[in-house]
Simulated assay, not measured.
Amino acid sequence: MPEDPLERLLSHSSWMTCLTDLQAERVRQAISIVSFAAGTTVCARSTPSAHWLGVMDGMLKLENISEGGKSSSFASVPAGAWFGEGAVLKGELRPYEIVALRNSQVAFLPRDNFLSLLEESHPFALWLIAHLNARLGHYVALVQNFRLGDTVAQVAYSLSGLFNPALFPNTERCITISQEELGRLAGVSRQVANRALQELQERGAIRVSYGSIEVIDLHVLQDLAREAA
């Protein structure tokens, strides 16, 4: 019998071990699951942050679009990851648009349930603090990496960041993503991303295929992401 997708996500979510059996069951009952086709909007910008989101399958991106229509992607979220806790904690309007990069299934945990866990479970609260600290560290490193101006390091970081064990513990080694989209995430053009990927491939970190990138040696990729520093 195939594994239930929600149970698969929850079984790989380390925060679930912080909960009592009753709390865990409340989470299961509260979650709603929605499927999205590639390219469709999961959550629009400036709408209420009413849910904490978990990616059951596929991949999402966080982006903003300028008044002139230019799209700027600043993060991608692979399967197995939970995100959006900052906006949920503050109760603010969502500051970015969430779009499905490919066909995706998303778990929606209502804000009230999320806040109840935070209030009732000291272990969950400690987990969330560590999670937010890991996310802060990830973005500080991202800004540092981008300011150094080494495009190969920028592309390497955008890829290796998807394997951050605290934020994205279940990323598959073969990532379905276009070079154009990776370029947006890395803040470079598709042509620059292509040249960087070729260099990363020559150095044994990745293997590039049409529409996908396979990470061959994560340690090498991480070293190259830090090389400019």
Rank of each mutant, 00 (worst) to 15 (best):
L6Q: 07
R8A: 13
L9R: 04
L10G: 02
S13W: 01
S14Y: 14
T17V: 12
C18R: 04
L19M: 02
T20W: 00
D21N: 11
D21M: 04
E25I: 01
R26I: 01
R28E: 00
Q29S: 08
Q29A: 06
A30I: 01
A30S: 14
V34C: 10
F36A: 08
A38M: 07
T40I: 06
R45H: 08
R45L: 07
T47S: 13
P48L: 09
W52D: 02
L53T: 05
V55M: 05
M56F: 04
G58A: 03
L62M: 14
E63Q: 14
E67M: 10
G69M: 11
K70R: 13
S72N: 14
P78V: 11
G80D: 02
A81Y: 07
A81T: 10
W82R: 02
W82G: 07
W82K: 01
F83T: 12
F83L: 07
G84L: 00
E85Q: 08
E85L: 04
A87R: 03
E97V: 13
A100C: 08
N103A: 15
Q105K: 15
V106A: 02
A107E: 03
F108K: 03
D112T: 15
D112C: 09
N113E: 15
S116Q: 07
L117G: 00
E119H: 14
S121Y: 03
P123T: 08
A125Y: 00
L126H: 12
L128I: 10
L128D: 03
A130P: 01
A134I: 03
G137M: 06
H138D: 14
Y139V: 13
V143M: 10
Q144W: 11
